[in-house]
């Protein structure tokens, strides 16, 4: 049977409309396979997804929704205070240990904020997680705390009384 052909510059030819539906023919030839099964054998516990939306919602505290602008206080501000607190709690002699009264003054919000601000065991992955999806343009770096304020803070908190011990 004679078929219509189109020619290219060097006289090779292909059947008419060969290229126009090539994609569809290719796709249909490989979209299903006689060798590869369609079922995977994975199962889920019965009713697993039934109440899923409520389960997820219970983990979301609307009050803590992140603003579009994320204020990063890793520089002098919080890191200075956190470093002082950590030093005070962990490295300095027990004379300056946190009293029960002081501990009681810490609200769960304070603790949550402390954790949310990333001062506990932050590694690269945690930082990536924290700021994933946040554009650099949306990250507002706060101005460094002036040296005078840090000195004043240290004075007010009587840091001179602490003795650092290094082993």
């Amino acid at each position: 049977m004679k078929r219509k052909v189109s020619k290219n510059k060097i006289d090779f030819s292909v059947p008419e409309n060969y290229f126009s539906d090539f994609d569809k023919r290719l796709e249909s030839s490989i979209s299903t396979s006689e060798v590869i099964p369609k079922a995977t054998g994975f199962t889920v516990p019965e009713g697993f997804l039934d109440d899923f939306e409520n389960r997820v919602w219970s983990q979301i505290d609307p009050g803590t929704t992140r603003d579009k602008t994320v204020k990063v206080r890793f520089l002098y501000a919080m890191s200075s205070i956190a470093a002082i607190l950590i030093l005070g709690f962990l490295l300095i002699k027990p004379a300056s240990t946190l009293t029960t009264e002081q501990a009681d003054e810490l609200t769960s919000f304070d603790v949550k904020t402390y954790i949310d601000d990333g001062f506990i065991n932050l590694n690269t992955y945690d930082i990536i997680d924290t700021f994933e999806g946040v554009s650099l343009e949306d990250i507002q770096m706060t101005d460094p705390i002036p040296r005078e304020e840090i000195i004043e803070y240290l004075n007010q908190n009587n840091v001179d009384n602490y003795t650092l011990t290094f082993e």
């Binding site: 590869i36 099964p37 079922a39 995977t40 054998g41 994975f42 199962t43 889920v44």
Partner: peptide
């Protein structure tokens, strides 16, 4: 416990 595939399905994975 949440995989009950046969041999071919395991081979597929």
């Amino acid at each position: 416990e949440y995989f009950d595939g046969d041999e071919i399905q395991l081979k597929l994975q």
